[in-house]
Computed example of a mutant assay.
Amino acid sequence: MTVREKFQVDLNKLREMLLELGKLTEVALEAAMASLLDKDIEKALVVIENDNKIDKLEEEINDFAILLIAKQSPVATDLRRIMAALKIAADLERMADHAVNIAKATIRIGSEAFIKPLEDIPKMHRLALEMLRDSLKAYNEQDLILAKKISELDDKVDEMYGEIIKELLSMMPKHPEQIAQITQLAFVTRYIERTADHATNISENIFYLVKGQHYDLNA
């Protein structure tokens, strides 16, 4: 195997590590929302405990990427692949942190009955998850059309975020005894909105990877 062939193998390994990180993040986000809807404290604790695996894998990706740069002196195109992977890994790790935050909100709410049926928050969460899945597919296939779709979904998530927060804030004066829960649900909504933002960041890095230019898809 030539040096160049070995480098391509390593770049593919970096891509696979990143896709694995994405899958673990997706699982964490799904489990976090399930724990909230089911008031399942044990499931929430598992999300929190498993975050260590995600953090460790992100560190491994960072170390491997830096090693590739140091040993191979990659040309522009290959360097973009490495830099994009580093940036995407950071966004995925932050998404996983938001899953942990949702799990912690689940624990704080506990077994208390929800102040309202949780329909809009899970719907918003499903959109954010769709954005994550699409971003990983777009990265793997370098699909710019799919990457652009992600930014369009982000607009829908932002709109839902505004509506949900407005409704939750309107409930506070009417239900002062449940302000703590309302606050936690508002936090959850914010974590989902930030998750969608990170998916948009990933789509922007896909454009950088393919085009070699930075694009603001939310402009």
Rank of each mutant, 00 (worst) to 15 (best):
I48D: 02
E49T: 08
E49G: 01
N52I: 13
K53V: 10
K53R: 13
I54S: 09
I54T: 14
D55I: 00
D55G: 05
D55C: 04
E58W: 03
E58T: 07
E58R: 15
E59R: 12
E59A: 12
E59P: 00
I61A: 09
I61W: 05
N62Y: 13
N62W: 04
D63N: 06
D63W: 01
A65R: 09
A65T: 06
L67Q: 13
L67E: 10
L68R: 02
L68V: 12
I69C: 09
K71Y: 03
Q72F: 02
Q72G: 03
P74S: 13
P74V: 09
P74F: 11
V75K: 03
A76F: 05
T77M: 11
T77Y: 02
D78V: 09
R80V: 11
R80P: 06
R81D: 08
I82K: 00
I82F: 14
M83F: 10
M83Y: 04
A84L: 05
L86Y: 08
L86W: 12
L86E: 06
K87D: 07
K87P: 04
I88N: 08
I88K: 03
A89R: 06
A90T: 15
A90C: 14
D91L: 12
D91V: 10
D91N: 15
L92D: 02
L92M: 14
L92C: 11
L92V: 03
E93I: 03
E93Y: 00
R94I: 07
R94V: 03
R94T: 04
R94M: 10
R94L: 05
A96N: 04
A96I: 05
D97V: 12
D97H: 05
H98L: 14
A99K: 01
V100D: 10
V100N: 12
V100E: 15
N101C: 10
N101P: 03
I102H: 06
A103G: 04
A103K: 06
K104F: 11
K104M: 07
K104T: 07
A105R: 07
A105M: 11
A105L: 07
T106K: 01
I107A: 10
I107N: 05
I107M: 15
I107Y: 10
I107G: 07
R108A: 15
I109N: 12
I109K: 02
G110D: 10
S111C: 03
E112V: 15
E112Q: 15
E112T: 14
F114G: 01
I115G: 03
I115F: 00
P117M: 06
L118C: 00
L118H: 00
E119F: 10
D120A: 13
I121K: 05
I121G: 01
P122L: 13
K123P: 00
K123C: 00
M124T: 02
M124F: 04
M124S: 02
M124V: 04
H125I: 02
R126C: 06
R126H: 11
L127R: 08
A128V: 09
A128Y: 04
E130M: 13
E130D: 14
M131F: 12
